[in-house]
Amino acid sequence: MEFLLAITIGVLYAASFYLLLRRGVVRVVLGVALLSQAVNLLIFTAGGLREGAVPFIAEGGKVLGAASADPLPQALILTAIVISFGVLAFTLAMVHRADQATGTDDVDDLKGTDAT
């Protein structure tokens, strides 16, 4: 499974990189979104894969079972998911606004600070 996930992550990175290199601004934003997904999945697999072992302390138990999934990467990713949402929202608003101001979606036309 880890091998398959490695390939999946590789494909996600490759796709996001390809999209980031495009000139259409929406594609670039899609690339940003995909990149954060790839990173989150990377951190997740780094924490180790466990099936049916949620990182909760069982009723009656005092400590987290040794077989449980690692809670730390999960906490990190939870934060990352919400932060990427904020970043993406900001990017989208910026692109939306740039489109209103300039009427173009070509990144190359958005180089300057002044509307063309």
């Binding site: 919400v82 904020g86 929202a89 989208l92 608003a93 939306h96």
Partner: peptide, 17 residues
């Protein structure tokens, strides 16, 4: 905070559109 952030973003973008 999350509720406020999300609604602020969605409403801003939506109303602007």
């Amino acid at each position: 905070a999350v509720l406020g952030v999300t609604t602020l973003i969605v409403f801003s973008l939506g109303e602007d559109s």
